[in-house]
Amino acid sequence: MTDKSPVSVADTQTLTSLGKAFRSTLSRDLLIAFKRRNDILNPVMFFLIVVSLFPLGVSPDPQQLSVIAAGVIWVSALLASMLSLDNLFRADYEDGSLEQLLLSPQPLYFMVLAKNISHWLVSGLPVVLLSPVLAYMLYLPSEAYGTLFISLLIGTPVLSLFGSIGVALTVGLGSRGLILAVIVLPLTTPVLIVGAKAVADVSFGLPVGTHFAILGAMLALALTIAPLASAAALKISVN
């Protein structure tokens, strides 16, 4: 027997600190994503493919493409984020890790936040990093590159956070189909509007400080409420 001392009621002082538990959850999810490289590759590939469809479907004319480039890239990023969401809690739900997470003596807000951050690093960040290449392919005016990049950098975490609520609500459902998109997409419209407008405005030479401020405010709001809502939703889903 490895066990040494008689059992007594746990002493909360010796619990793992929040910081360590947070890092442990974050690194676990990153490790899982790393072991299943498709989870990283698929959203980026999807993003690339969807964006490539527009020149084929609309027109390869540089003038037309440069007008719609910002919107196309933003909508594609939104869809890529949506499709990658299922990885967020599904496997954990099915194998019971989610129950263990809910039963840990750690604040659920931070545990869900750790999972969200991991998910964004794996599925959102690659999309952001790839966006300048696609912007070039769609003839986005070069002065808008920085704005596109920054708006996606602030905006895609908001998409992940809001999406997380939708996944948490639907993770227990047998047949999910498109319900996740139906729930989440309307919630994400403000981010799309502000993000795409920032890129469009900077192409016209307009200042975009307000746009970034609004996106930042949305990110702050999402960081505050989304993990709480996700945590509450997860409790309902395992019930």
Binding site: L169, P186, T189, V194, L221, I236, S237, N239
Partner: peptide, 25 residues
């Protein structure tokens, strides 16, 4: 029971979002 609570959460999140949607639009 689960549907009641899940929809309640979605309604609250949506209600927070409605003014944001309105102003951003």
């Amino acid at each position: 029971d689960a549907a009641a609570k899940a929809c309640a959460i979605l309604a609250i999140v949506g209600a927070i979002n409605v003014p944001i949607i309105k102003y951003s639009v």
